[in-house]
Write a protein that binds this DNA or RNA. Sequence first.
DNA 1: CTGAAAGCGCTTACAG
DNA 2: CTGAAAGCGCTTACAG
Lengths: 340, 340
Amino acid sequence: VGASLKDVAKLAGVSVKTVSNVVNDYRHVSEGTRSRVREAIDQLGYRPNLTARHLRYGRSGIIGLALPELGIPYFAELAEEVIAAAERQSWSVLIDQTDGRGDRERLTSSGARSRTIDGLIISPLALDADFLTAMRAELPLVLLGEQVGPGVADLVAIDNVTAAREATEHLLGLGRRRVAAIGDQRVSAAGTANVRLQGYRDALAAAGIAYDPDLVVPAESYHRPDGAAAMRLLLSLADPPDAVFCFNDLLAIGALRALREAGRRVPEDVAVAGFDDVEECRYTAPPLTSIAPDKAAIAGSALDLLVSRMAGAGPAEPAEVTPPFTLAVRESTTGVSAGV
Amino acid sequence: VGASLKDVAKLAGVSVKTVSNVVNDYRHVSEGTRSRVREAIDQLGYRPNLTARHLRYGRSGIIGLALPELGIPYFAELAEEVIAAAERQSWSVLIDQTDGRGDRERLTSSGARSRTIDGLIISPLALDADFLTAMRAELPLVLLGEQVGPGVADLVAIDNVTAAREATEHLLGLGRRRVAAIGDQRVSAAGTANVRLQGYRDALAAAGIAYDPDLVVPAESYHRPDGAAAMRLLLSLADPPDAVFCFNDLLAIGALRALREAGRRVPEDVAVAGFDDVEECRYTAPPLTSIAPDKAAIAGSALDLLVSRMAGAGPAEPAEVTPPFTLAVRESTTGVSAGV
DNA sequence: CTGAAAGCGCTTACAG
DNA sequence: CTGAAAGCGCTTACAG
């Protein structure tokens, strides 16, 4: 099912070089030759074989995108943006799901070593700085999120400390004084939880409120059931919180469920804020206040960085891009309906 | 960044053929030679260049997955399953987002014509049977969903008529008599809406209830806001419904929102059922009853069909696989809490 | 058990 | 303006 340059050349009565010239729109092809070749191409239904072209060029035109799982709305929405941005620049995107497991994250680099992908955008959960540094030496690499700090490889992440501080300040600004946090992770390398916890503590300190470890509940993973379990724990406290900042939206959605089951009103009894601003936030009961990272900017920056790395450009030092975010205020904290 | 077979051969003092034999684990290589080659491979950090291998074989090891958008949870969850199944069989998955637009859906086949993908799993919204038939002649193709009927190409879809009938019967079984439907589409080729509407009508007929066109509300697209708008329309009726079957979960989630805003109780005033059983269903207020297609089975069947087509196997006639589904009953229809 | 050669389909100096 | 040849890295008959 495929005519080659040679077939076209034979039919048009020219050399393959000439056909190649026509296909690639080079100058210096006479009009007559060009149209003869065009006709032969149409007649045979010729399409260039990209695999062969890629072998010649030493690149594939495909980039990898490694994420924990597409079932998590934040990653699905991010993947949507990355693919859309890539398509605009004629790159194809191959998706790898890592489940946040180190072995699978490490495997993502093998696609590059075997020349299937020209570069990789990865949201690493388990890989450490050493491994990522080694990876970066082998393939153009862009890191997403704050799991590892800057200086390891090109990095795209919003300012999580500030974002978490603003979310907490918003809750404090509503007059809440017992503000809990859900999503702490007592794993050494858990950068995301650490920076968000830092912002939470900064806000408390600035407001002159003592840090109460009882109000900080860990979450093993960042799924809805984890948030519900954590909220139940908080509700069982002798002095329960009047507000809770969840380190992602799924945790917050679980917390809303636990509050509903316990008959607590949101936000009257407990105000709830999340992080990521996934679509679902607009339709929870009540709609969820959340930190809204600019996902299109994150995806666009990541792709731009990767493209320039793949072109061999960019500074020797890893770059760091910090896309903007906003706080999307909704009824789960203010009680005011914003309509649909 | 890349030693070739030739480099390894030189270092090991053998021919490239011998190295190739070792790499591909062929018999008939003496132990001494094998270990010498192994050492050279390790020393040079040699990895086979898949692009070259693919050129030789005429295939890429990559399949395409074309979906409307990853931002829709059902498609994200389905993509998750397809990628997981593909990885188990060492296939890589390249994702294309079509937005349901015909021009973008047509483009997905060009990846195949240029040998980037060996086959395509597509959930078509806009393509007609003629185009798909032509596409099928050019590349191994598997269709997802019921937008087009059987006989065009290999097709994987649950029995939508039966599923819609069961959902409606469930509502009727609760004693509801004014059961509405949200998600009708007055577009000619809109197979999904048609088959689900058929199941709805079948259930009404079997129960001896007259079909009331006022209770069937169209939806331009299947997103949350469309469901909310449709529900508001139903609530404005002189004789509003006491139950509503939504053709997908996002519509149902929008309907829940409109009901909440209008102060109606679910399910006491209006029972609500959806379709797809996305994760979010378990955490809506109240949790949403929904038709639950076996997504892993859908993904697995689609991949198996595609793999056998790519291998040149399979009958000349298009195959049809009908994975199972269940009705996940939750509080939005029964009012009984199932816990978390 | 191992080697030399051809070829997958393309592009690119190098000639003319 | 066009052609003949080499080579990207691999595998596979064909010899030996």
